[in-house]
Simulated assay, not measured.
Amino acid sequence: MTRALSAFLVLFGLIAPALAAPQNKDGDSAEAIDLLTQASKAVRRETYRGIIVYLRQGDVDTLKVVHRYYDHEEQERLISMSGQVREVIRKGDKVTSILPDHELVLVSEHPPKSMLGGMSHFSPKRLKANYQVVDLGTARTAGRDCRVIAIRPRDKFRYGYKMLIDSKTQLPLKLNLLHHGKRLEQMMFTDIAFPDHIPDSEFVPSYDVHGFRIVRHQAVHVSESASDKREEQWHATNLPPGFKLAEDGVRQLTSDASVRQMLFTDGVATVSAFIAPAGLRAPLKGATRMGAVHAYGDIVDDTQITVVGEVPAITARRIAQNLVQEKNTAKKAPAAND
């Protein structure tokens, strides 16, 4: 449910500050880049409530969102209005997801420097090498005037984006995810208001969760004991152009089993690689897809490698086929260039 809004948070929260640079010879619009920078702040700092529609593979999800930045902390509440009954409440780094039909509460906490948390991984040079930023003029959505901005990929390894940014508040109101000019997914506000204040009562759960099962997800962290073991070291070779390793962490599943998560980014798109003992879940070998999300699985000896991201299939496959364990480096040659 949160993937729709996460698209805004990731795209504008991570790329826009890094894009803040003058116009260059490749035709990037300086005004568009500046607007993206303002949008990155608005998506966190604006107070608003509205209705969001998320379209993917012919399916339509509708949800109500309430958002504010209060006492130096972001707060948000999402309520499903179609499909499965769900409610998500976020306060700072803590996210609580309530699934009343299953009497289940999922709680996750991410420290400030968790996955996707550090701007140090993103650089204007890499962004400009892989994308072109273009100002496409004006349009209206949700009854409001907007600027239309495009982020166009320079090669086959990444998607493109087209967005409408509110002219008054700079909040992104519509986002299209594109591949070869074809829309893969769309997220948009169909109704939105910007009140001066939203009370605490609007961030309280609608459901009494007494007696619900509570599942807490452990944040990904770097395990020193795992990192010290040479045989557990993994690295990537021959990555798609522009992609670099941004994070490398380990989550302990049981006393004798852990999963390593590696995050790769080109400055806009992010791809996660999961490395775990084979047999923990149903095996995945080869490619699979859900909407714009592509996954590719490979089994190496007794290890399951799974790569997932909102990227073209060729990107997920190339990363998966070029993850090597240090002790096996000599046994597995890098895959040929795609």
Rank of each mutant, 00 (worst) to 15 (best):
S6G: 11
A316G: 12
N130S: 09
R68K: 15
T62M: 05
K229A: 12
V307M: 05
H221T: 07
R260S: 06
V220M: 14
H102M: 11
V222I: 12
A7F: 03
G83V: 08
F194G: 00
E46P: 10
L239N: 01
D166T: 00
G279K: 05
K113L: 10
G143P: 06
V107R: 12
P205D: 12
R158F: 07
Q261A: 13
Y131G: 07
K125F: 06
I79Q: 13
R251Q: 09
V105M: 09
K128C: 02
V107G: 14
A129T: 08
L19K: 06
H217C: 04
D298P: 06
F122D: 03
Q170N: 15
Q233I: 12
V53S: 02
I151D: 05
S123R: 10
D266W: 11
A20P: 04
I165T: 05
K244Y: 03
Q84A: 15
A129L: 10
P277C: 08
L14T: 05
G242Q: 06
L136N: 04
T138Q: 10
A287T: 06
M188Y: 02
N337C: 09
G27V: 01
D301S: 14
H179D: 07
R318K: 13
L11K: 00
G83E: 01
F157S: 12
D196Y: 14
R183W: 03
G309F: 12
V215H: 13
G211L: 13
L99Q: 05
H221A: 09
D228G: 14
R140V: 07
T315F: 12
G143D: 03
T96P: 11
R3N: 11
V204G: 06
S225C: 06
D191F: 08
L171N: 03
F8L: 01
K25Q: 14
R90G: 00
R158E: 02
Y159E: 03
S82R: 02
G117Q: 01
T169V: 14
M115P: 03
N24S: 03
A316P: 11
V148E: 09
I192D: 04
I198C: 04
A42K: 02
I51V: 11
L19W: 01
P100M: 08
L284G: 12
S123T: 13
E76A: 14
A16V: 01
Q57H: 06
Q170W: 14
S114Y: 05
T62D: 05
D196L: 15
G286N: 10
V268N: 08
F122L: 14
R56K: 13
Y207V: 09
